[in-house]
């Protein structure tokens, strides 16, 4: 018998299953053209925003890049996450996933970390800019390090939102559009604040860009980190609920 014995360390085992799912999803990204298209588009745009400052204004810094990153990611991350559950529902393999001995949390976390890992891989070539900038100038490393930490937190938050959108539908286009709308809304929130009366100023705290720009200044404040972690936790919780109930 291969099945049977339950390991006493249940938590470790569940983490292991998430890891297996994550590895499978991550591999799946690079087996299809979508990964390469998304990465190419991402680097075409970020490259433009980096070199605009680099050559045009003769500035050896990465601020231009990090300023546009939240908007860029609000488009790109939903394209990465749109298939995660929608494709499984469409093809019917969702039934396979849900009848394997994995809990809904295993499946959701596996897919979530696959999305985050993909974003990290996608971001990693921008480290070349980092090296370039250090070779030709002497920028403050704080904002750069903060920028990367912020970018990962932001990507994680958007991934969790995209995963939630993907768990609602079997249609990847609907999944993409709703995830993008939600991410874009969170991005624009602190910018539309000027149209609201003063007492509504607190709304900007709900915006992703507000918190990202704080971190990207090189100041890692727990409040900003907690914001991103809560967005992830909340979205993942609803995703799990969704996966458990909508069969």
């Amino acid at each position: 018998m291969y099945s049977g014995s339950l390991q006493p360390e249940v938590k470790m085992k569940s983490l292991n299953e998430s890891l297996i799912i994550m590895r499978k999803e991550l591999k799946g990204y690079f087996n299809s053209p979508i990964a390469y298209i998304v990465i190419t588009v991402f680097h075409a745009f970020t490259g433009f925003f980096f070199f605009k400052d680099f050559f045009y204004y003769n500035q050896a810094e990465m601020r231009g890049l990090f300023q546009t990153l939240p908007l860029m990611l609000s488009f790109v991350v939903p394209a990465v996450t749109m298939k995660l559950f929608a494709e499984e529902r469409q093809s019917g393999s969702f039934e396979i996933l849900m009848t394997l001995p994995v809990s809904a949390w295993d499946a959701v976390l596996g897919k979530f970390f696959a999305g985050v890992a993909f974003s990290a891989i996608m971001l990693s070539p921008t480290l070349i800019y980092f090296v370039t900038v250090f070779l030709v100038g002497s920028p403050d490393p704080g904002p750069v390090i903060g920028g990367y930490i912020g970018a990962l937190l932001l990507a994680a938050a958007y991934t969790s939102i995209g995963l939630l959108a993907s768990s609602f539908t079997r249609n990847q286009i609907i999944s993409f559009i709703t995830a993008w709308a939600a991410c874009f809304l969170l991005w624009i929130l602190d910018k539309v604040i000027i149209f609201l009366p003063a007492p509504f100023g607190f709304v900007s705290y709900f915006g992703t860009d507000f918190h990202f720009q704080n971190i990207a200044r090189g100041i890692i404040d727990t409040r900003d980190v907690i914001y991103f972690v809560s967005v992830c936790a909340l979205s993942l919780m609803f995703t799990v609920k969704n996966v458990e109930e909508r069969r």
Binding site: K24, G28, N31, S32, S91, G92, S93, E95, I96
Partner: peptide
Amino acid sequence: SAPLYAEM
């Protein structure tokens, strides 16, 4: 109808 992961 064995809905398996098509790309794998």
